[in-house]
């Protein structure tokens, strides 16, 4: 009799555990990544902050603009090749990002030089080749200095400017920005911290799942 009660008890416990497991599964709908920046509501539609129109030249002398990233997720950053402070770390980390998604046609990388005077197209080409990365996946762009600074500050919320008191003559943030297919900012990560870059790599996948979910819902 005692044994029986114990069996019934253990069965009951099993059912409770199964129920909890089921519940936790059904709650596993992923929370979408946040959208950064100001938003406006016009006629019931929410307008989010998006990357302003831009046009730069990449390491192959090809024009790179918003259309280049149409229907793509991309990761943006600001650097310069002669920088010895945070850029080498950023490039080491971005290379990890590149390796994690080099076979993924949905994702691109956009690195802006903030020293276009020194970082010519030829120099950027050499730099990209030395990193061993492909130009149609990772764009290194140069352009008019003011346009680069302006887009950094106003579109990507990243600091980039000349400052003679800095060791290399520039002040800039080491941020990596995750941009979605609607050109909205969905994540900001410190490109000098390995753990944050790991999170970025995970968030790229998360964003891809978000789009995959939308597709299957249609």
């Amino acid at each position: 009799m005692k044994e029986r009660i114990e069996i019934i008890r253990s069965k009951g416990l099993l059912i409770i555990i199964a129920a909890i497991a089921l519940l936790s599964c059904s709650q596993k709908i992923e929370k979408p990544l946040p959208v950064f920046g100001e938003r406006e509501v016009i006629n019931g539609d929410t307008l989010f902050h998006t990357i302003a129109p831009f046009e730069f030249i990449n390491q192959d002398s090809a024009i790179v603009n918003n259309a280049t990233f149409k229907g793509k997720i991309y990761i943006a950053d600001f650097f310069f090749t002669s920088c010895r402070t945070i850029c080498p770390i950023m490039k080491t980390q971005m290379l990890r990002v590149y390796d994690s998604l080099k076979n993924d046609p949905e994702v691109l990388i956009l690195s802006h030089t903030i020293d276009p005077e020194y970082d010519t197209v030829a120099l950027l080409k050499d730099f990209a080749q030395r990193l061993g990365v492909s130009s149609n996946k990772w764009h290194f762009v140069t352009g008019v200095q003011d346009s680069i600074y302006k887009i950094a500050q106003t579109s990507y919320f990243a600091t980039a400017m000349e400052d003679n008191s800095e060791p290399d003559g520039f002040i800039h943030s080491g941020a990596f920005l995750l941009i979605d297919k609607e050109q909205r900012i969905r994540g900001k990560y410190d490109g000098t911290v390995e753990a944050e870059v790991n999170l970025l790599i995970q968030d790229v996948r998360k964003l891809e799942r978000e789009y995959a979910g939308k597709k299957s819902a249609q």
């Binding site: 080498p88 080491t92 030395r130 061993g132």
Partner: peptide, 15 residues
């Protein structure tokens, strides 16, 4: 180590 890395492996053909 910023350029040559903590593990001394450098970076591609850059460093």
């Amino acid at each position: 180590s910023n350029c040559h890395q903590k593990n001394g492996k450098g970076l591609g053909l850059v460093y």
